[in-house]
Write a protein that binds this DNA or RNA. Sequence first.
DNA 1: GGCGAATTTGAAGAGCCCTTCAGTGAATGT
DNA 2: ACATTCACTGAAGGGCTCTTCAAATTCGCC
Lengths: 215, 215
Amino acid sequence: MTVGRKQRRERLLAAAQKAVAEHGADVRLKDVAQVAGLTSGAILYHFPDIQTLLVEANRAGMERFYDQRLKAISGSITPDRKLVVTIASGLPRDSEDEAVRLLCELGGAAGRYPRYAAMLTSLYDRQVAMYQVLLEDGAASGVFTLAQPSQTVARNIVALEDAYGYRMVARHSTIDHAAATQLILDYARLATGHLLDQPDPVGLDHTVPDAGVPA
Amino acid sequence: MTVGRKQRRERLLAAAQKAVAEHGADVRLKDVAQVAGLTSGAILYHFPDIQTLLVEANRAGMERFYDQRLKAISGSITPDRKLVVTIASGLPRDSEDEAVRLLCELGGAAGRYPRYAAMLTSLYDRQVAMYQVLLEDGAASGVFTLAQPSQTVARNIVALEDAYGYRMVARHSTIDHAAATQLILDYARLATGHLLDQPDPVGLDHTVPDAGVPA
DNA sequence: GGCGAATTTGAAGAGCCCTTCAGTGAATGT
DNA sequence: ACATTCACTGAAGGGCTCTTCAAATTCGCC
């Protein structure tokens, strides 16, 4: 057995996600096949038709995004650290971020695909709930002083993340990951009454540690 | 009688906008023709190909959206009224709002169509500038006490409008025009230090002014 | 009423897309 | 070694799309 039946399916789901991020929600079967390195027929051997594959792939893509956010939270300790890290994790790395591009494409198509609309609504609500827990937790421990109900703050934070995701995917010249993070933190500062100063190295360390012989 | 050459073109642009809002950025020529009540050939008599038509139509749709926002501003007098009215005018009426659906579709496709990305970036920046003027004006006249730079507040307000537009188009069950307006105003209140109480007749008065705002 | 220009139609060509399916290998089990 | 199952290919069918174009229709105007 090369890879097992289940893993093969997941490779196709991953290929479909990439294809949607690249070609839109109405991506062609041929494009998915090309990303997967197969022919159209091979894909239809694993899935009854292309819609079934896409719906499953898109759902999986959203769940993966949400799961990674939850994982990002669990790292930090204090509520303020958690908030900063979580906000940063909700934004695309750069304009090529595959997961966010997928979400943008689906968000655009949600108006005409009720299924995607429902999935995105659920995703939004869960993210809001996630932030609400974080905010209430911080308020209970006295770290945050909420100026507004936690639901209001949570809804606005997630909304800001979404919107700056779109702006970054559209390659806004001055709104990059750092700028967007600061803009959202500016709101969070007002809403929580906490300074929320950025920790130095959050793990995104692109600089080479310069160990070894320079050629 | 017909309508003159120019008006005929504009009818086609309007049809194309509606078609994009309904079928996405990759709408078919046939769909545009159907909305216009013509055949595909007739449309190609006025435009060299479908891409040219779509690019022009989408640009016109964005400009129209922006112009109507400017118009909405000019009505009110005081900065706080202006702010409330402008925020309300940036959100879709309901989930079927054609202009916002168009913007959502284009926003989703912006990742793979640099032209649309540039147009949307420009639209965003102009809306930010519009709010900046409004905020600075209010601050200068002492009505607002800005807690943050006007650019920060303006960027966040426009971002919130965008995001709630997407949520409404996706038919979120609890975020309608009124709820979204309040959420954005909640941020604006923190940022401007003004109460920003909603004026009664905003123009769209379908419901009894019963629940919601306490005395 | 009739003429020329503007507009629209309907058909046809070339091309792409999804899906089905017979057939090709490779892997697996016996 | 042989049969069987699995994974995949490549071709073919049927349908849809964009575009072109000759013919038909409508319009503005004299």
